[in-house]
Amino acid sequence: MADEMERLCSGVDGVDELIEGGYPYPSVILVAGPAGTGKTTFTQQFLFAGAEMGEIGLYFTTLSEPPQWVMHYMSNFKHLNKSHIGKNVIFCDIGQMLRKASPEEILAFIDEEVARTMAQRVVIDPITVIKEFLGNDYRPFLFDLVNHLKNWRAVSILTGEVEPNQLYPSEVAYASDGVVLLTYEEVEGARRKYMEVLKMRGTNHRTGKQSFVITKEDGFVVLSGTF
């Protein structure tokens, strides 16, 4: 009797086609990749695409790039409509609280912001730095976080920084409903960027690496065809 699962569009050209039209709603998706692959750009497009349809997006920065600088770099992209900032795309820095708060306090803060804004789209960029502050509490924290985010009825993207010898941050990958990998590869002397959907619960997703580009005009765009 179950109908098609409700889905929210990704905001990135070429991605929805890979995942039956969008991310399951609600769900938590890990977007993982090494420095500079485009994680922040990917998540900003996700929030602004929702904003275009009247949805509310909430963007938490941790300890990597403060909101000011995310906005600074994103203002370079023509397709992101800045009039959504502060209205349908809300920036929230939790970097300072991470340095001193307990896992319960961090979770309570995130809960409160999501509840207050009633956001349908949430981003935590990056989630992985939180591990350094929580140690052994990190895994239970992730479990609760993922559970709460879904119960708030949002699609949430957590970004994961990846160390050179690592494929993805495994604790987050297990807890998440979906995993999207961004990688660099050297092809014929040039470095190219690829994205791959490794996991998407409830979805008959395409596998294999898809090449993508980031341009000033269109932002993050996945090119069709596998490579």
């Binding site: 809960d111 409160e112 509840a115 207050r116 009633m118 879904k150 119960n151 708030w152 009825r153």
Partner: peptide, 14 residues
């Protein structure tokens, strides 16, 4: 669909 606490906290916050 989800525990009642979510609705309860929403009501409190608002």
């Amino acid at each position: 669909d989800r525990p009642h606490q979510y609705t309860a906290s929403l009501l409190t916050i608002h």
